[in-house]
């Protein structure tokens, strides 16, 4: 299958390993990756801030470039939800409405694509650590992704998944919300990593780098012994432990 990979702006800039891992996993499964490098962003920051016109400027480029693709995979629940659920709303009543709907139908979040579309579970990964999973809100509630990442993690050798009490609670990132209301955003993040710490996990794993960027920022500032890592990186982790 020819898979078009949409790499969100912050993954491109700050978390390239998540994207690279997705590429390597999909290629190992025998698929060809198309990376449209003229695309940089889905337009969500402007959309969430109320600037729909500016958001459309960015999104039109996405619509046009992805028009003739077979299937589109996004390594982020949040940007996935933007294209899948919010593009049809953003373009409702415009000449792009139809294009938005047809793109929506072929867009998948990465873990959903692996489990639902490709039907794979075991990717041969090895990650000998205790982890807990954070359900990003957009993936969970907009796209209904809950079991898919857990199915994939269940096959990772050496990995122990301990669910945290607040797995489904928002981490507090929320895009521009985190800068407009940093005090609330921070309090939410503290509740989140507090719940993760209670599990005794070494890593918080998620399918959304944006949540992890916020949580990692808090952990680093407060010096907590907990790391964050994108699901794709865990699934691409194949080295054997040295000893």
């Amino acid at each position: 299958m020819k898979i078009t990979l949409f790499i969100p702006c912050f993954i491109d800039a700050c978390f390239p390993k998540a994207g690279a891992s997705a590429v390597e996993i999909l290629e190992r499964l025998g698929h060809t990756i198309d990376y449209p490098k003229e695309l940089t962003c889905c337009g969500q920051p402007a959309f969430n801030s109320g600037y729909w016109e500016e958001s459309r400027t960015t999104a039109i480029k996405v619509l046009e470039r992805l028009k003739d693709t077979e299937v589109v995979v996004i390594v982020s629940g949040s940007c996935g939800a933007m294209i899948k659920n919010f593009y049809p709303e953003l373009f409702a009543g415009t000449e792009y409405e139809e294009a938005a709907r047809s793109l929506s139908a072929k867009v998948y979040e990465f873990s959903d694509f692996l489990v639902t579309k490709l039907g794979v579970g075991d990717l041969g990964a090895q990650f000998p650590h205790k982890v807990t999973f954070h359900d990003g809100c957009h993936g969970l509630r907009e796209l209904g992704i809950k079991q898919q990442p857990r199915k994939l993690l269940a096959h990772v050798r050496g990995l122990e998944l301990v669910e945290m009490g607040e797995a489904e609670s928002c981490c507090g990132f929320g895009g521009t919300f985190s800068a407009k209301f940093p005090m609330i955003s921070t309090a939410m993040g503290e509740n989140k990593y507090g719940s993760a710490l209670e599990t005794g996990a070494e890593y918080i794993v998620s399918n959304d780098s944006s949540c992890l960027m916020h949580i990692q920022g808090l952990l680093d500032r407060q010096g907590k012994p907990l790391r964050t890592i994108h699901l794709a990186e865990v699934l691409n982790h194949r080295q054997l432990p040295h000893s």
């Binding site: 790499i7 912050f10 993954i11 491109d12 800039a13 700050c14 978390f15 390239p16 390993k17 994207g19 690279a20 490098k37 985190s178 800068a179 407009k180 940093p182 005090m183 921070t186 993040g189 960027m213 916020h214 990692q216 920022g217 808090l218 680093d220 500032r221």
Partner: peptide, 19 residues
């Protein structure tokens, strides 16, 4: 607004598109 309570993420030595 970000750095008051959080560390800023870093632009990676090699971005995805560079990779």
């Amino acid at each position: 607004a970000w750095t008051r309570s959080r560390e800023l993420p870093k632009v990676a030595p090699q971005t995805f598109r560079e990779w």
